[in-house]
Design a protein around this nucleic acid. Structure first.
Lengths: 224, 224
DNA sequence: TCTCATTCTTGAACATGTTCAAAACAACGC
DNA sequence: GCGTTGTTTTGAACATGTTCAAGAATGAGA
């Protein structure tokens, strides 16, 4: 809704910062919107003027993260060659950036329902999601990996889904420094890359045909 | 909390029935606890005497479902031989039983957080989950399928997870009669069974070694 | 039949996310 | 300057999940 002045932007930022601070200190659930508003020095209504809901504050943080992540990831992608390196770069950058607010992200995972405006799978977040998927498309393209044509169109979306699963595990990973997620990531990445390479071998393609059919069924047959 | 009389059981059942009715008619989110209580002819407090929360009502329905599903599934399992048939039986029975309240189940999927008492992955629901996993253990055992020893101990839990994913897709599947989920199920089941069989071939085991390691990392190395 | 402890039941009170009408402020044309 | 129009801010009001102190019902033991 708010679109105009620079002062408006500042207020919005002030509310968002205050919210993240309060959420970190008291936990997302225990923090109240009244606390957030008071920490930002505004009335409750102001918070709702800039953000649709309490969860939308966390989503705004997630959204803003792209501004920081895009250049960082682009740089690292340019320096890395193999697909494995590239995928590591994307996921590691994300984990590192989100780490200080890791517990917060659980607020987002509460909305699995694709019809909810804040669901990571819904139409309401298509922009964020597509920008995100673009990372993986970029990581795959000109990485020198030969791809089976039946799975190639779905690979970026599949990798995005894989990374969402990792993030979910990571958010609730209570091992020290989330070391468990890191190990799981490396090991699973190995397996996935192996499967991708295998699928591209012409002789083995018949074996992978059902996988291609499954993907077509699940994602539909849209061109892009 | 409530433990004693038969009248108590009746009241509890009356509240649960009323809740499901109201949830079905008005949707889980739009329905209020006051409506539920009024439909059951009790005060709001009574509902909270028997159920910990609004979501707990849906969980109670899910819990009760086992009483209906166990005999039905046991019977069908006894009549089916192949692992494919058996897995179809389990999932199909569940879908059929939950179908009238399909939209309701979305209330459960809201709690991904394993620390939440109602999370399907948390300690609070371990009993329900283990009973559920037992179906898959039973489907696998004496089904005549040779298993790779590195994945065998995890297979029931893996299949349970697979079925949870299917349920999630099913809950939000808006294709007529959820035909899409059904097709996805059949196709993915084919692939999974193929992978399981391949993994058991001695010559190919080295290829599957990383998968075993991954599972050990993800699930830990507890004996049962 | 009369305690009295336990189990149920009640509905008002509470906490908190969210809405909204009204007020304050800002910008702009005259 | 002064009205007009659009933006921002306010805080009380609202809706609803949940709690809780108090009362009713129940049943066991004397």
């Amino acid at each position: 809704m708010p679109r105009k002045s620079a002062k408006s932007d500042a207020t919005r930022a002030r509310i968002l910062e205050a919210a993240l601070r309060v959420f970190r200190e008291r936990g997302f659930h225990d923090a109240t919107m009244r606390e957030v508003a008071s920490a930002a020095g505004v009335a409750v209504g102001a918070a709702y003027y800039y953000f649709d809901s309490k969860t939308a504050l966390v989503m705004a943080f997630y959204d803003d993260s792209q501004a920081h992540l895009v250049p960082a990831i682009e740089d690292s992608l340019a320096q890395s060659r193999t697909l494995e390196q590239r995928l590591r770069v994307i996921v590691t950058h994300k984990f590192d950036y989100f780490a200080p607010n890791r517990a917060l992200m659980s607020a987002l995972s509460a909305h699995i329902d694709p019809r909810h405006p804040l669901s990571p799978f819904g139409a309401g977040t298509a922009d964020i999601r597509n920008r995100d998927i673009a990372f993986f498309a970029r990581a795959v393209s000109d990485s020198g990996v030969r791809l089976a044509p039946s799975i190639a169109p779905y690979l970026p979306r599949l990798l995005w889904l894989y990374q969402m699963g990792l993030m979910l595990y990571w958010v609730y990973d209570d091992s020290p420094r989330q070391e468990r997620t890191r190990q799981l990531f490396f090991k699973s990445l190995q397996i996935i890359l192996f499967a991708i390479k295998i699928a591209a071998i012409p002789v083995l393609r018949p074996i992978y045909r059902p996988a291609g059919e499954l993907l077509r069924m699940a994602y539909g047959e849209d061109k892009p």
